[in-house]
Every structure is written in structure tokens, then in C-alpha cells.
Simulated scan of single mutants.
Amino acid sequence: MLPLYRDPAFYQLLADSYARLLGQPLVPPTVPPADAARWLYETAPFAVLAHNTEPDPVFIYGNKAAQWRFGYSWDELTRLPSRLSAEAPNREARQQFLERVQRQGYEAGYNGVRITRSGQRFMIEEATLWQLFDTQGHLHGQAVIIPRTRDL
């Protein structure tokens, strides 16, 4: 099975759902379409994560910037329940954020505390979370862009 970072259909799901909901491209228009999925995974200067629709959602995608920031390899990250990216005291605020996105389709400007694999706390700033809806309206999960972080 092709990992999602190499799957053109998954890239289209990310990019198309983002563009539909936010009215702007996920990848800069200067990046050639044939290179967009690779650019997003390998080169993007911001973190992108996605989780599935399981009752306890698991990350299904994390670009290199996200892997570096959270301290996980692809294989580790894509087995991690997304709730574990926040410390227990911060999980309720994270859950409320996710529920708002379910109702509204997306939310921009989110700030919150997250935790690395090694237990280091950091702040995500100006994050945008959106629903991953395909063109038929089926929900595949949620994705987030984290443009900035800072150590705490």
C-alpha cells in the first residue's frame, strides 16, 4: 500500500477540501502541480497533519515539518492517536476546537499547547484546521496547518 504522503488522491483530498473551505490554495501557485504533493510533504515551511474519523482519531498524515516538530518518524506518527499530541490538561480545549471545526467546516487562528514525543511542551500559533470532505461530501477526517510554533 502506498503511504499517504506519496498518494496523489490523498494530496488532492487535502488540497481540494482546503481550497473549497478556505477559498485559497494549500500549496503556493508557484509550485508546479506535478511537484505539489512532494513539496507539501518534504519542503513546506509549515507543519501539516491529518487524522482519520475513528472514535479515537489516529494521525494518517504528517509532513516532514510536523514530524520534526513533534519528534516522530512517519511510522510512529501514523500510529499515534491525535489526542496524544496534547497533554492531558489541554485535551479538553483541543476537543472543543475539533468540535467547532466539525460544526463550521474549518477554523483559523487557533493557538494551543502541544507536546513532543520526548515530553517537551510547545505552543502552536495561528493554526487552521479543516474538515477533509471529498467531492462527494464524504468525511475522511480533519487536517491542520501549523504555520508557527514556539518552545515553552
Rank of each mutant, 00 (worst) to 15 (best):
18 Y>M: 11
29 P>K: 00
8 P>Q: 13
130 W>Y: 06
79 R>N: 11
118 S>T: 06
51 H>E: 10
118 S>W: 02
3 P>F: 13
133 F>E: 10
16 D>Y: 05
26 L>N: 12
81 P>A: 15
51 H>Y: 15
53 T>N: 14
55 P>A: 04
141 G>D: 07
139 L>N: 01
149 T>V: 14
19 A>V: 10
117 R>P: 05
4 L>N: 11
63 N>G: 01
74 W>E: 11
120 Q>V: 03
48 V>M: 15
114 R>K: 03
96 Q>M: 07
2 L>N: 08
136 Q>L: 04
70 F>Q: 04
87 E>I: 04
6 R>E: 14
111 N>A: 01
54 E>Y: 12
106 Y>W: 03
134 D>K: 06
75 D>W: 07
85 S>F: 08
145 I>W: 10
70 F>G: 00
15 A>S: 15
144 V>N: 04
50 A>M: 15
27 V>I: 13
31 V>I: 15
64 K>V: 08
84 L>T: 04
78 T>F: 01
102 Q>T: 01
48 V>Y: 13
11 Y>H: 09
121 R>G: 00
115 I>M: 09
77 L>H: 06
42 E>R: 15
48 V>K: 14
3 P>W: 15
146 I>G: 01
27 V>L: 09
152 L>A: 04
123 M>L: 09
39 W>L: 11
71 G>L: 08
79 R>A: 14
46 F>C: 08
116 T>F: 00
81 P>R: 14
60 I>F: 06
36 A>R: 08
124 I>R: 01
120 Q>L: 01
37 A>L: 13
67 Q>K: 11
81 P>S: 05
138 H>C: 09
82 S>A: 12
116 T>K: 07
90 N>P: 00
68 W>M: 00
103 R>S: 08
85 S>R: 06
89 P>G: 15
137 G>Q: 09
148 R>D: 08
44 A>D: 03
76 E>V: 04
93 A>C: 06
22 L>D: 01
33 P>A: 07
20 R>Y: 07
116 T>Q: 03
100 R>Y: 01
88 A>S: 06
35 D>W: 03
119 G>Y: 13
15 A>G: 06
18 Y>Q: 09
129 L>D: 02
1 M>K: 12
96 Q>E: 04
65 A>Y: 11
67 Q>M: 08
101 V>Q: 09
83 R>L: 09
131 Q>P: 04
149 T>W: 08
73 S>A: 08
22 L>K: 08
140 H>Y: 03
151 D>N: 11
123 M>R: 00
68 W>Q: 10
135 T>D: 13
93 A>P: 04
142 Q>S: 02
150 R>Y: 00
72 Y>G: 03
24 Q>A: 15
91 R>H: 09
136 Q>R: 02
5 Y>T: 12
43 T>S: 12
16 D>W: 01
104 Q>H: 03
132 L>G: 09
96 Q>S: 09
78 T>A: 10
120 Q>W: 01
52 N>R: 05
54 E>I: 05
84 L>Y: 15
